[in-house]
């Protein structure tokens, strides 16, 4: 029951940034609702799989693969390129805080001097950013890489 509540809370609050960023990317109005649904499903699925102990990178890969396939269906149905839905849906999962922590660590290391603790911050956050990002965008690319293999989808 707690898990269900956690999931609903998570999906609701992930749908809002998906729509917000979709508006920054000027996604057409009638497609915003798809961004919200895909964003909620993606983030919810990632939270769910992480509850079962999957590391965040693999959970991100699984979630964006799911978004990729959902986007594939919508894209064929509405004749619209897939990134229109899928990228906005993946935005709530982007490791923004890790990325900024990496860069801040670098700046701090220059101004305040080298410490092993800072080096640890930079490397750990940097690797997390890198691997989550690769997982996210590779997941979105899976339908076209595995199934379409170079043929146009729309």
């Amino acid at each position: 029951m707690d898990l269900l509540f956690l999931l609903i809370d998570d999906m609701f609050w992930a749908a809002i940034p998906a729509v917000g960023f979709a508006m920054v990317f000027n996604v057409p109005k009638q497609m915003l609702v798809y961004c919200a649904v895909a964003g909620a499903i993606g983030h919810g699925f990632r939270t769910l799989t992480m509850q079962f102990g999957l590391p965040i990178e693999w959970a991100s890969l699984a979630a964006t693969t799911l978004i990729g396939f959902i986007g594939l269906y919508w894209s064929r149905k509405h004749l619209i390129p897939r990134p229109v839905f899928t990228v906005a849906a993946a935005i709530p999962m982007i490791p923004g805080s890790y990325a900024f922590a990496t860069m801040l660590g670098l700046v701090e290391m220059n101004s305040g001097g080298f410490t092993y603790q800072l080096l640890q911050t930079v490397i750990e956050n940097g690797l997390k950013t890198l691997f989550i990002l690769i997982a996210l965008s590779f997941g979105l690319a899976i339908p076209s890489v595995l199934i379409y293999r170079g043929r146009p989808i729309v």
């Binding site: 960023f21 920054v24 990317f25 990134p83 990228v87 993946a90 935005i91 982007i94 923004g96 805080s97 990325a99 900024f100 990002l133 690769i134 996210l136 965008s137 590779f138 979105l140 690319a141 076209s144 890489v145």
Partner: peptide, 23 residues
């Protein structure tokens, strides 16, 4: 403080970057 700068994450270029390299 951590959340308020997330509007500045260049998410679209980063995702495009990886998917360009994959393809």
């Amino acid at each position: 403080m951590a959340a308020c700068v997330l509007l500045l994450v260049p998410g679209f270029p980063l995702i495009n970057a990886v998917s360009d390299m994959v393809k």
